[in-house]
Nucleic acid binder design. Structure first.
Lengths: 232, 232
DNA sequence: TATCTATATATTGTATACCTGCGAGAGGGC
DNA sequence: GCCCTCTCGCAGGTATACAATATATAGATA
């Protein structure tokens, strides 16, 4: 946690201090400047931002509910550690939810949605070519949101957003694996084609495969890294 | 919100005031004594329990993240309204997640799990016969938890628990519909039989059908009630 | 009479101070 | 020398006080 003035941090939306703190800590965790297992003392944050502990404690409650930190009464908060098993479980759920969304969205997609999917994938191809992982990531999110929104189940959309938000760091890592972006572009192309055909079952299967492949490669990579550096 | 002493409320687990407040408000919402759309003023709760607003505000953050209340900055908290559309979306997701869990759990179920499922369903039949909705509900939850646990995806289990907790009130209403408990017992029997056969796909389909039927009947009932009492 | 405005009130957001429980370290006893 | 215990300090939990904002109400003016 670096020194910072809360006044200058969020240029946009958030109104209350609590909301700003939530955003800041999420960013810190997702970007890796706060590492899993690391303690998050209220006082330190309060001092660094020059505010009281009250909004910070409220932010902690929210972050705890969303899975970013783990709070033990009378002991304090730590960044929730995420294991390879968590990652594996996450991708299984993402695959399931997105697969359903895609199947359901298939007959509902409008021509402009199809155009959008094609356009996004074309941009992704470019981003992949220049190695722009972050750019690719944003486009990929929009791609998936397209059919998550079109499926019409808003609760499902919210649920997926909550999940992917928590695992953002890992999803970016997965994209950065060698060849993964190009691979993903090919999968997306197949998905768009299936959408055009109106083959809902095929679309569902392909979307699930897309998630499972990311998950599989990432878990493999995590296990490899672990072996390299020795156990835990 | 009635007068009560926080000291006497929870006889068990919770340690901090915040946790007790969370439990209390959840119970109040689920039981219906706090109605959707109703305001939840911090001061009133603080006064009724004889405590300060601090733990209550923290409880609000948690309840907000879990979907029980909606907080608008500088305006306050209201119990989240739930529409028939929300119910419909909820059952779609429950069906999906539990269907997957059942399919995955199928080859993993031990003989004692099968025994447990049979025993639970037998108890449900009795509970249904004597019209014990609450008892049936608890048994039903255990029935579903059996394969949710066995499927091995802990995150999935937690997700389903979070969802069903939020919709508990409606699920009880669904069970109380005429004939629904007997109907459910029959569906459960078919599910157990499919588990014994080891037919994972059939199990998944039956579990999904079970959820969808509850959801369908409930939404129908909600719409009927609405028509009876006039719009909104 | 209707509408606009200003003031008052109620409620939430934040800061500060105090209390309590847990853990680390020092001291003494075995 | 080792272990047990007591005490002190730190960090989180709660209470209270103050600041800011939204809503309601009352008054004045068109």
């Amino acid at each position: 946690m670096q020194r910072a003035s809360i006044l200058e941090y969020p240029v946009e939306k958030p109104q209350t201090l609590r909301e700003r703190i939530v955003e800041f800590i999420k960013d810190s965790i997702v970007s890796g400047s706060l590492r899993p297992g690391e303690r998050v003392p209220e006082q330190e944050i309060a001092a660094n931002f020059g505010i009281s502990r009250t909004p910070i404690r409220e932010a902690f409650r929210q972050l705890e509910s969303e899975g970013f930190i783990t709070v033990t009464p009378r002991k304090g908060a730590v960044v929730s550690p995420i294991t390879d098993n968590d990652v594996s479980e996450f991708y299984a759920i993402k695959s399931l939810l997105e697969g359903y969304a895609a199947r359901t969205a298939c007959p509902k997609l409008l021509p402009k949605d199809l155009k959008r999917l094609e356009s996004l994938n074309a941009q992704m191809e470019k981003a992949g070519a220049r190695g722009d992982v972050k750019g690719f990531f944003n486009l990929d999110s929009q791609f998936h949101d397209t059919f998550l929104i079109a499926c019409g189940n808003e609760k499902l959309l919210a649920l997926v957003h909550q999940l992917v938000g928590q695992f953002e760091r890992f999803r970016i890592t997965a994209l950065a694996l060698p060849g993964r972006m190009n691979d993903s572009v090919r999968q997306h192309a197949a998905i768009v084609a299936a959408f055009k055909e109106g083959d809902a079952n095929l679309v569902g299967t392909l979307v699930m495969a897309n998630a499972e492949r990311s998950g599989g490669l990432l878990v493999e990579d995590i296990l490899k890294e672990r072996t390299k550096y020795g156990a835990h």
